[in-house]
Computed example of a mutant assay.
Amino acid sequence: MPVRDQVHQALALLTVPASPKLLSQVHQAFFSSPLNTARLTTLRRDEERSFRSAPYGRAYYICPALTSDLLSPARGLLALSTWPLEQRLVGPLTQRVHFLTSTLRLADAAEHLAGEAGMPQPVQQLLLHYSRNIHGDTLRGPLDLDALRRAAAAELEIHADDDADTRAEAAQRARQQLGDAEQIFGNILRNTARLRRTS
């Protein structure tokens, strides 16, 4: 399967922007095939080049997440162009919100995948990592998907509204200030100007 399709599979499962490392882990665990992360930098450039030469010529584009302050590409986070702008933006609380959201998504997918045969070891290892980052290193015993979901949902409730407000405000600015390509791939000129002002 082409790398582009592999990235799409992993992002569609997570429903939040993700790093190449996480995309690789998720694809290996849930789709049983490695993802060549070395290809992702080239992939992102190819996607933007394709969009600018023939806008909306593809059903979706692999694109960067965008920072809520500068509306520029967020370092090391990939998203899908078909997601609403709010879903592709990242603010101060978004990294944790995305972690908790993806925890819920992966726990549901793992339960569906387990079926009669039990949970595959790579999936269990990935979810144990998530569980330790919610419950802390004190976690003992077998993985409890219901407990993991409850803990993730409880913490998500604390952060979700503030994060959503930040991203909604940023999305409104982006729609007012940026063209179609920049709303998908980010405003690099804005970022460069900011760096010049602060240097």
Rank of each mutant, 00 (worst) to 15 (best):
L66H: 08
H129Q: 00
L104H: 00
L11E: 10
M119I: 07
R4F: 02
Q9P: 14
V123Y: 01
V97P: 14
E116S: 12
I62C: 11
P92R: 15
L80S: 08
Q124E: 13
S72L: 03
E47D: 12
L104V: 05
L40N: 10
D108Y: 10
L70D: 07
Q87K: 02
R105F: 05
G91P: 12
T82A: 04
R4C: 09
A79N: 03
D69W: 01
R88P: 09
L104Q: 03
N36G: 11
R52C: 05
A29G: 03
T138F: 10
Q9T: 08
Y56H: 12
F51D: 02
T15E: 13
R49F: 09
A54K: 12
L71E: 02
R105A: 15
A12C: 14
P122D: 01
L78V: 09
E47V: 07
E116H: 04
R58D: 01
G76Y: 10
G141V: 02
R75A: 15
R4A: 09
V26N: 04
L93M: 15
L14P: 07
G76C: 13
P122S: 01
C63E: 06
P92I: 14
L145R: 03
L148M: 07
A117L: 11
Y60Q: 07
Y56K: 11
H135G: 14
R4T: 01
H27D: 08
D146G: 15
Y61V: 11
L126M: 00
H135E: 13
P64W: 06
R105Q: 15
Q124P: 14
A79L: 10
T42I: 03
R58E: 04
D5M: 14
S102V: 00
P84G: 08
Y61S: 10
S81C: 11
L71H: 02
L143F: 07
S24F: 10
L40V: 13
I62T: 06
T15R: 13
L66E: 03
L104S: 03
S81Y: 11
Q87E: 01
A54I: 08
G115Q: 14
S24M: 08
A107D: 04
A117G: 15
P73Q: 06
A109Q: 13
L77S: 10
L13K: 12
R44C: 11
D108V: 12
E48K: 06
H98A: 04
P120A: 01
D144R: 11
A65S: 15
R4G: 08
A117Y: 10
L127N: 05
L78C: 12
T41W: 03
A10G: 02
T138W: 12
P34T: 00
W83M: 05
A65W: 08
T82D: 14
T37C: 14
S32M: 04
Q125M: 13
S19V: 02
L22K: 06
L148P: 09
L126K: 01
T138P: 07
C63W: 02
L23Q: 02
C63Q: 10
